[in-house]
């Protein structure tokens, strides 16, 4: 019963829509920085062969444990492998890991959330109760259990991180879908005779997508961190794979003689994660201006 015809609000909405979305995103300095780092990462990943001076696994590209120099921008490791090349190839690996893990969480989670919200009744109870149970296992435990079963490897680490993320995505999607479903436009469509496919894929899905994009972006940083942690523990990528977490782990033995072995991979992970974090925050603000106040 509150009055809602707010012409000011309409005007505000309209102004926003005239500004292209990307512009609104980049207009926030944080968003621009995040986007820039992500673009740099993608370029590194796509053109690793062209950018990296050496093969990432070629031993004795230089003398072992030489400090950073013009020949080896980030120095060499204990086998004389070029660290810069390993970091560049590591970017490709890291993005792959993040995308695949998030892809798994996102697709399964969205499916579960949508179906639970749409189907209602027993299916909803079953799906969301089990999601709650799995969620309270915590992501680390799920990932660890998966690696314990499947055995340590990069592929298994990706799958483990992906599966571990499913409950969070499912819950978010469920909450978002549920709120859309309660809106009159959805019921108007039911009244107009819309079938399941139309309701699910033309009304529900497009309206939860913005939320899911935001949490997937923030989720990328989470997945990258988790996978790097697994590799660091020796449960993910195995040598000589140029994975940042594994490199960091190998580098710690040489900290006194070659601190760069530990610094750069760590820095690379931190920057990447930071980039996706601020990009995610900026995306959320751009999609929902009110979030700016809150986050």
């Amino acid at each position: 019963m509150t009055q809602a015809t707010d012409t000011a609000a309409v005007g505000r909405d309209a102004r926003q829509s005239r500004t292209p979305f990307v512009l609104r995103l980049v207009r926030q300095p944080a968003g621009a920085i995040g986007l820039a780092i992500v673009v740099a990462l993608v370029v590194m990943a796509l053109f690793a062969e062209q950018i990296a001076p050496y093969s990432p696994i070629k031993m004795a590209a230089g003398r072992p444990l030489t400090s950073p120099s013009l020949a080896h921008l980030l120095g060499t490791d204990e086998f004389g492998r070029d660290m810069f090349s390993r970091i560049v190839y590591g970017a490709r690996l890291t993005l792959q890991i993040g995308l695949i893990a998030v892809g798994i969480s996102l697709s399964i989670g969205t499916l579960i959330g949508l179906v639970a919200a749409y189907a209602g009744g027993f299916v909803e109870k079953l799906l969301m109760r089990s999601t709650d149970v799995v969620f309270s296992f915590t992501e680390t435990l799920i990932a660890l259990a998966f690696v314990a079963v499947l055995g340590p490897s990069l592929e298994n680490a990706m799958i483990a991180v992906g599966i571990a993320g499913v409950p969070f995505y499912a819950r978010t999607c469920y909450a978002s879908a549920l709120s859309e479903e309660g809106k009159p436009y959805f019921e108007a469509s039911i009244a107009a005779g819309a079938g399941h496919a139309r309701l699910l894929f033309l009304h529900l899905l497009p309206n939860v997508v913005p939320t899911m994009i935001v949490i997937a972006t923030l989720g990328l940083s989470n997945a990258i961190l988790a996978a790097a942690a697994l590799s660091f523990l020796g449960l993910g990528a195995q040598p000589p794979t140029p994975e940042w977490g594994a490199m960091l782990s190998a580098g710690r033995d040489f900290f006194n003689r070659a601190p760069w072995l530990m610094l750069y991979p760590g820095l690379a992970i931190a920057l990447t994660v930071l980039a996706f974090n601020i990009l995610g925050d900026a995306l959320r603000e751009a999609l929902d201006p009110r979030a700016k106040e809150r986050s």
Binding site: P184, Y185, A188, S189, A192, G193, H203, P206
Partner: peptide, 21 residues
């Protein structure tokens, strides 16, 4: 779905009544 087309509905909240997309 077939029969229900004879009965339609208008809702209170004009903001949520239309699919924003």
């Amino acid at each position: 779905r077939r029969v229900r087309r004879a009965i339609q509905m208008i809702f209170q909240d004009p903001y949520a009544s239309l699919d924003p997309r």
